[in-house]
Design a protein around this nucleic acid. Structure first.
Lengths: 196, 196, 196, 196
DNA sequence: ACGTGCGGGACATCCCGTTCGT
DNA sequence: ACGAACGGGATGTCCCGCACGT
């Protein structure tokens, strides 16, 4: 369906606002400030309310977009090779991402945590995401078992859950230096070798 | 050091306020409300301001106290037996604690996360705590290696870090049912058996 | 520039608020009270915050407006006649104004003093104002020298500075009765006659 | 009358507190902060309330002490020589003092102004001080007329008032550089030469 | 003579959401 | 689709003064 120029403007504005909101929240650590988020892209609060309805609406959109961005990155890092290689690739990629784009990942972690405390309306989204992540990892293990790169007798669910938990746990420890984080990820990779 | 009766009152009040603050923050998920925290123990915000100076001062005191409480519980759960038994005991106890006293542990997690975002003044405390936790777990592994309950060829640091990360990661995932959380911990325990 | 009806309202509100703030500060001697200032003209502190941003913003606007009002009055009192007559007119007018609209002039003085103590952000404005006043008076002397009403051998800067200083000094002594102030101004006028 | 050691301590404490209060008020420009003033000399609020009863009591004591200090300095600067020399000495000394110990003099000015606005209870003191200053200057003129150093036909009251006003006016103007302030005082001195 | 705990009023500030324009 | 004015609740902070001890 073709859009009128008016509508196209609207879509563009929405994108700008969403991006601005992610940057603001990642940088400031603060809650949300409609005025600042909007003025950063030359718009005003009115536009934010028009597109997202409320603070909660904006935060939810931010959450979904952030999750989407992260999934995109991680999946592309675990596309090639055997199941085992893909699992290792995912772990390495995660450690790198956490270190490189830290404010973004702090935001992602924050939103997950807030889903269980301050912003209950995010809970369903958060739960779905966590489940999907665990399942994705378990699937990698199963793929590895099928192509013979991973031992048959390990429990895919157990490994999937553990890998996911470790990834999240490393994020929590984001206070440390990026190099320490990477080292921890490597140690965990070595440990996993023994099991797989 | 002997205290005047006046000073003793003060110490008592401080304890009450701190406890009240922990309960409030754990329950509400909100930041802090001086009026409510104080009136819950029959005092006023004047007293809070007197003892903690500011919101930041109170939050830091809360953080330290929460960390202390958690450490107390966890250590008492890993006192008896071989190094291996103590490590397993710690994992079991953590899973139980996370499931049983959830609001408290959500608070603890929240403060760790906020140390990297909203409340930078908590960062030094958080770093110290994380390091101590990892070292404690590594020490358990080393103890196990000495008493023969854990294989010599595993890396104590790697295991310590992983166990710590998994524990925190489970918390982030906010797996809804406590039973599921316990199951995840068990699966991880089984996995660890292979390594140790 | 054409204004929307909405914007016109805003300009009107800003003026009302500024006027209300001047009256409040002049009368009360107190700092500022957003609630009272706003409600006096049927608005709320939200509007004040919208138009002036903060207390400092409001105070600065008040200062500038007060200075403008005073300049307007004084200049109109020294428009006609020879340079000498205009200088005398200015002195007489000042003494009268200080006595008649006392609360307003106490406010003006207060703001000048606070510019050097409590409110450093007013300092640049205050300095500019003082310089302009001194220059204006010096110019009157020079005008008088050109039209022959004032002796050539007096230093315009010296006279300008002195007249300005005396005017301010009289204001500081605002504790005295208005009649005493007027008498002091007259005495100074007589003294000046000798010099000019 | 001999003092017990207990009483002597009290006197000493009072002096320390008063000095601390002057320094605090001069430096901070803020109103008064009992806690900080007291702790700066190793005492607490209790001592301040004991010695001065209230904020107003302390401020009044500060005002009187500041006035006393200033008078001491100024009088010692106008002790020697003819009446005319003493008057000139006083003007020079004032200009120097205003430039050298500015925070102190800003405080003195502030208190004079507040006597007419925020702190009416200072008004009687302020009025007495102003009168005494004018009379002191007029007396210098009369002394000069008696010893022949000043012309008979000038009005002592007019000159006294003017000199006093100019001194205070210079302070209000907060001319930034001390050198400029001194220059202004010199110009005024030259102007006065013509009259005297 | 002085320390100390604490109550409590006052107030700026923040910021969300609505309304009315255009 | 968006801009601008504005209302209004919530809350941290400041800081004075009292009451009680020693």
């Amino acid at each position: 369906v073709p859009l009128t120029s008016r509508q196209a403007e609207g879509v563009r504005s929405r994108e700008l606002l969403l991006k601005s909101a992610i940057e603001y929240m990642a940088r400031s650590g603060r809650a949300v400030n409609f005025d600042q988020i909007a003025s950063a892209v030359g718009l005003t609060k009115g536009a934010l309310y028009h597109h997202f309805g409320s603070v909660d609406g904006l935060v939810e959109a931010v959450f979904k977009e952030a999750v989407r961005l992260h999934a995109e990155r991680v999946i592309s890092a675990s596309e090639a090779g055997s199941g085992r290689a893909r699992l290792q690739g995912l772990i390495d990629a995660s450690a790198m991402l956490y270190g490189s784009d830290t404010p973004f990942y702090r935001l992602l972690l924050r939103l997950h945590v807030e889903a269980g405390t301050t912003r209950p309306f995010l809970a369903p989204v958060a739960r779905r995401v966590q489940r999907r992540q665990r399942e994705y990892m378990s699937q990698l293990v199963r793929d590895g078992q099928e192509d013979g790169s991973i031992r048959i007798d390990v429990d895919p669910e157990a490994v999937g859950e553990t890998v996911n938990a470790v990834m999240q746990g490393l994020l929590v420890q984001q206070i440390e230096e990026a190099s320490d984080q990477r080292q921890a990820a490597e140690r965990f990779g070595d440990l996993l070798e023994v099991v797989l």
